[in-house]
Design a binder for these strands. Structure first.
Length: 297
DNA sequence: TCACGTCAAGCAGAT
DNA sequence: ATCTGCTTGACGTGA
């Protein structure tokens, strides 16, 4: 089990997700920002390695406006050596990488222009991972999307749209259960049709489920990850205390986390902690794992 | 230096 | 009809 956090490191001043406003766009500004973001990404990965955090989600902002028509600068070519260097660092240290395009990426949308923009954005994410030379265990995670008042039709649309994608994108994509529309059974159903791996989000599952046993869910999800996909990825968070909104906790809830670990035995997966204090929680989680060997599968 | 309105993009659910 | 949350944070203007 590798443990990690998404996108932002709160201990370092170096941020790998700097961006700017669209109206401030210039090729020069873009280059400066990308240069900063790539430098910081390597800093963050070095920091992570030092603490034994071997899983990381790269921010979608690493190349601002990458899929926007305004961006015509050939950043792929210009920064290719730096991408390669980062990729080599990742591979040399056996790190796991994911990316998570934001909420605007909806491949089951009925609107063709939204779909086209989504494909362009997914292609950009895949390009980043490809430029780093990472194998297909580096994943891009998506939600199934909208319901549009007819869930079964929307699932069919997801499947059809997915099938139409280029193989270079499909090999990176995984789907994740969400907290209000598509639960883990929906994801597993989609997997049956198109073999896309299913990323289990524990917190979303606590908010939307069919009272399945935790082990059954882990077993079912595990089977959706083929050899080439690597071991399953799992997202973990807990409820922010005193709220009922599904907001993510500020700090790792140690007792909830221990229950999670104990109940997830003997399954092995790479775990992303979606907790607001980011790497602090991962350090706590690693300490818990070390101090309680029976939690380790 | 700092407060705060706003930021490319979609959707669902609440108000 | 409008606002809020989502993996929310950060940009950038004006005081």
């Amino acid at each position: 089990m590798k443990i990690g956090y998404p996108c932002i490191n709160r201990s370092l001043s170096c941020k790998g997700n700097r961006t700017f406003r669209l109206r401030s766009y210039s090729d020069e500004r873009l280059q400066q920002t990308i240069q900063n973001n790539l430098n910081c990404l390597l800093h963050i990965l070095r920091f992570n390695l030092k603490y034994g955090m071997l899983f990381f989600r790269i921010s979608s902002d690493i190349i601002p406006f990458a899929s926007h028509p305004v961006c015509t600068f050939p950043w792929q070519k210009h920064f290719r050596h730096q991408f390669k260097k980062i990729g080599q660092f990742i591979m040399k240290n056996d790190m796991r990488i994911s990316m998570h395009p934001d909420q605007f990426i909806v491949i089951n949308t009925p609107r063709e222009e939204v779909f086209q923009r989504s494909v362009a954005e997914i292609a950009y994410h895949a390009e980043v991972l490809d430029l780093m030379g990472l194998d297909t265990t580096a994943k891009i995670q998506l939600h199934v999307g909208g319901v549009y008042t007819d869930k079964s039709k929307s699932i069919v649309r997801f499947i059809d749209r997915y099938r139409s994608l280029d193989a270079s994108l499909k090999r990176r994509l995984v789907i994740e259960n969400d907290e209000k529309s598509y639960d883990i059974q929906d994801c597993l159903l989609i997997h049956k049709k198109i073999k896309i791996p299913v990323l289990f989000d524990y917190f979303h599952h606590t908010l939307l489920n069919n009272h399945e046993s935790f082990c059954d869910v882990l077993e079912s999800c595990k089977k959706t990850w083929a050899e080439k996909d690597g071991i399953p990825m799992v997202d973990y968070s807990s409820q922010k205390p005193h709220t009922t909104t599904g907001a993510h906790a500020e700090h790792l809830d140690k007792s909830d986390f221990k229950v999670f670990l104990r109940n997830s035995r003997p399954y092995d997966f790479d775990l992303m902690l979606e907790i607001k204090d980011k790497e602090r929680s991962v350090i706590k989680a690693l300490t818990i794992l070390k101090s309680d060997p029976r939690l380790i599968s």
